[in-house]
Write a protein that binds this DNA or RNA. Structure first.
Lengths: 80, 80
DNA sequence: TTTTAATTTAATGTG
DNA sequence: CACATTAAATTAAT
């Protein structure tokens, strides 16, 4: 077995996100993705206030909200 | 990277699937995945007739139908 | 924006 | 057809 991706990241694959039922590393649940996607269509560039509220509502750190919106912008652009 | 299976996968990354607007290699569309998943729940082991009909309905080769069902079986088992 | 790393999925090969 | 494994793609995060 060739460990192609054998990166020694140790235990950095967080075990629980808070609401995460499956602790893979960091995966948003379909429900959370749905909310994020819906809000993205309304406003691709939410302010800190909106992000904070959303973070509390989805029970995930604001950092991830911000990252998700950034990645979503890139994804939308690369679709074309 | 040891190419253990000296298979000629070099240029086998099809450029256009026909129904796919983005011909990367071969990705089933959510619609097709939905149909396959639904049928899998009804019958995980469809015969050649059912596979053929499904292949024509989804407009994809029967081979891929068969492979998908095999992989789906594995996935269901590995869930636990 | 680019890259890295983890996960998933389509496909191949073997028993 | 079950099973292991590879290659390509997706996605979260730096």
């Amino acid at each position: 077995m060739a460990t192609v991706h054998g990166a020694d990241l140790g235990e950095n694959v967080n075990k629980d996100c808070g609401s995460g039922s499956r602790g893979r590393w960091l995966v948003l649940k379909p429900t959370q993705q749905g909310v994020l996607h819906a809000l993205f269509q309304l406003n691709p560039y939410p302010g800190i206030a909106t992000r904070g509220r959303l973070a509390r509502e989805l029970d995930i750190p604001e950092s991830r909200i911000q990252v998700w919106f950034q990645n979503q912008c890139m994804r939308q652009l690369r679709q074309s």
